[in-house]
Design a protein around this nucleic acid. Sequence first.
DNA 1: GTCTATAGTTGGATAGAC
DNA 2: GTCTATCCAACTATAGAC
Lengths: 211, 211
Amino acid sequence: MRVTTRLPVAERRAQLVAAALDVAVAEGIAATTIRRVAEQAGVALGVVHYCFEDKDELFVALATQIVDDLAAAASGALEFDEDADLATALQCAINGLWDTIEAARGEQLLTYEITTHALRTPGLQHVATRQYEVSHAAAEALLELASSTTGAAWMRPVSELAGEVLAIIDGVTLRWLVDGDGAAARERLSSLASYLNTQAKPARRRRKVSA
Amino acid sequence: MRVTTRLPVAERRAQLVAAALDVAVAEGIAATTIRRVAEQAGVALGVVHYCFEDKDELFVALATQIVDDLAAAASGALEFDEDADLATALQCAINGLWDTIEAARGEQLLTYEITTHALRTPGLQHVATRQYEVSHAAAEALLELASSTTGAAWMRPVSELAGEVLAIIDGVTLRWLVDGDGAAARERLSSLASYLNTQAKPARRRRKVSA
DNA sequence: GTCTATAGTTGGATAGAC
DNA sequence: GTCTATCCAACTATAGAC
């Protein structure tokens, strides 16, 4: 299935990262070999080595890509009703977030594989760190949007709450990958939303504009 | 470093599982090859194939072993003060649990690797499932012990609470593996303890036997 | 029944062709 | 500058020796 078109290196890199992502999502990090990626992209083996110094560099590119993709998908799904109170806003936001997670099982599983692989590989810790930095920023954004939309004020530092939110979403997602029980996952996240609601001072009652 | 002693297969298996665990804890699942295990145990390569049908079977034995080991360590660390209220009992239990987690970084990381590897490998899902069954049972035991010791009554099914506890511990641990911040992890778990305390009806006041 | 020696497969990397 | 052909290392598995 080889198409012999010469391509500038930047475009090749993009193509190869996309191919690597396809393989990694479907078959896991362990199966994402240089050979397999070359095959998926329809190029010769050496082409991958020409575009990436070594396997680690390809891995870093792959990880960067999916982390950004998932963050974009998650924040794209964030919408709050106007005139909702904090409790409903949070339930709604977390529910929407879960929709995007549940729609991308392979990507989520890959996320954990990337973390452990990065932690085990000398010189690749920064990949795992970045995963959390990006997620943390997204979690903070969610919390701050919820607060500013509803007028409620967090009683603890948002960064601290974001850390807790992240941990719970992580744990719930991993559990879901194992047991496949989406309803249970949603209920666990719903408890999270309720908990968060206890960590804020409610908004001063605004005039309710009802239908 | 080969010692040429013949051994009954059961003992060899045990020795090899121990060796495999050593390697896996220190170097990760990907590095835990049949060759590496044979080397670690000081036996010839083929010996491993004689004791285990294939690599997957060795993996299953390894996973079973560490799951049981960690569960035993965790429940061994569970001790409650008599005459403590639920809030302190929970804080104390979760604190102790965290001690055992923090004392075994490699084992914890391995736990996540085992999960993802099992999920990615056809026919090995049951390994991941068992991890959660064992942990879930341990979490339920913790909750029930806390309740029976302090006389408090959970207002929701213990199984449901255990699911939430598990998810949070999982998420917090994974985060700690990445950022190494044990203090932050402890604080996140402390929030969990506080949350749990809101999910129970306090004990009827018992006569306080003070010092 | 237990272990050794060897075969066969897969994968990362490179020298050099175009 | 881009890609091909080839090398070498590491791994799983097995046939057969003791």
